[in-house]
Design a protein around this nucleic acid. Sequence first.
RNA 1: GGUAGGGUGGCCGAGCGGCUGAAGGCGGCGGUCUUGAAAACCGCUAUCCCGCUUAGCGGGAUCGUGAGUUCGAAUCUCACCCCUACCGCCA
Length: 448
Amino acid sequence: MKRLNDSQKLGYDKSMVDAKFIREHARAVKDGMKHKNLDPKIVEDFLTMDEVWRVLTKELDDLRAEHKELTHSIRSGSTLNGVEGLSDARDTKGAKAAKAKIQSKEEEYAAVERKRKTLWLEIPNPPSPDVPVGKDEKGNQVIRTWGEPTTFDFEPKDHLALGEARGLIDTERAAKISGTRFAYLTGDAVLLEFALIGFAFDTLIPEGFTPVIPPVLVRENITEGLGYWQAGGEKDHYRVHGAGDDGSGKQEFYLVGTAEHSLVPMHADEILKKRDLPKRYMGFSTCFRREAGSYGKDTRGIIRVHQFDKVEMVSFASREDGDSEHEYLLSLEEKLFQALGIPYRVVKICTADLGFPIARKYDLEAWLPGEGRYREVTSTSTTTDFQARRLNVKYSDGAEKRYAHIINGTAFAIGRTLAAIFENFQTKDGKIRVPAALQKYIRKELVG
RNA sequence: GGUAGGGUGGCCGAGCGGCUGAAGGCGGCGGUCUUGAAAACCGCUAUCCCGCUUAGCGGGAUCGUGAGUUCGAAUCUCACCCCUACCGCCA
């Protein structure tokens, strides 16, 4: 495996949207930004700076060529093979002057390049053409519904009421220990979690997914390579500093918000073989989220917490297969929820709700009887070749090399899935029936 | 916390001031041979950027990153990043 020797290489050296593409499709890129509710003027500013940059590039290259020629002429008459004095280095003065010109040009160039790059980094992955244009989440489209909202002949409770009553969830003690938005899962809730994990693995491994337990601490530069940063992503994650084991004593990490964060960069700076694609991974990890800016939202229960476990899918595909792979991950998410017997609907997320690196995204929203509405439980996104560019993930069939398409999707976000199970499978006396698909993992039909 | 070694092309690995974008090997692609395959042999085979008369050609950059010395740096100097091994500590 190739090592990441140069941290700086990731995230900053690599392009995001191809510069040529921006030049040639300025209109489409601008529309894409507008539809993502970002200021399309950045594209104009980029192109202006790009023009200047190109002129300077040419000038600088010419100066360098000139200088190169001078040094070559010196060398040819100089102390070659230890024979000295052949030349008394005729035009070192001219070469020096040429060097000086280069240096001043380089300063100018560096300043322009910096500005150009700053603007460039602010250009997001444009939405896929099939994505509905929308101003806000109201533009999201329900594209299909599976099952009917579960009905009860009693008043259904929400997951926290059920969980607390049966000793499955304890948020009060968690608050004492860790604060709000933490929970203890206890007793049968834990068994259900492991059942879900086992079920996910048994379902997905036959589909060609390699199971992975990834690191949950990742370096800062890796997170940048994922491309969520422009959207203010850093405030969503916990920063941790620890001592490096090289004795340096300092190292900055981020706690992953999802296994995607350490699964996707696995192949950074690698060239995959086309015949090995799609490369599918399923990672189980604990996920950490600051949930800054979500004050007052979903404060009840385990829908929105700082720490939860998740089984995540990540797929590396060729660019021809990227879209079908995305649909495929969606179909697997549906398969999992159908197997559980949880009613859901599929929502195609509109442009305004797409994250910076994302070209297309579907959410699965499960029916939560306790709330009387559908709530997001899984999500699958394609970043097309956007993350691949930043992380330098290519594939090759021996002749041609291309950036891979990287697609991610949730198998089970445990907390929300448990909430959906609790609420949909509750009995009149407040117990919870175990979905048939999970019974072989938990060896019970009823918990609580 | 301590000590040592190291980062060169798709991979391994030479080079340690000058036609070096980089030997050699492996891999990959094409060919010869073969009924076919293998082997053997021959040839080709890095990436990025800019420009143009755009199936090509020209120029530039790139040997972890950045700065410096020099007419000239993969090679010398400095700083930083990263990796590996050992000791200590530890689930």
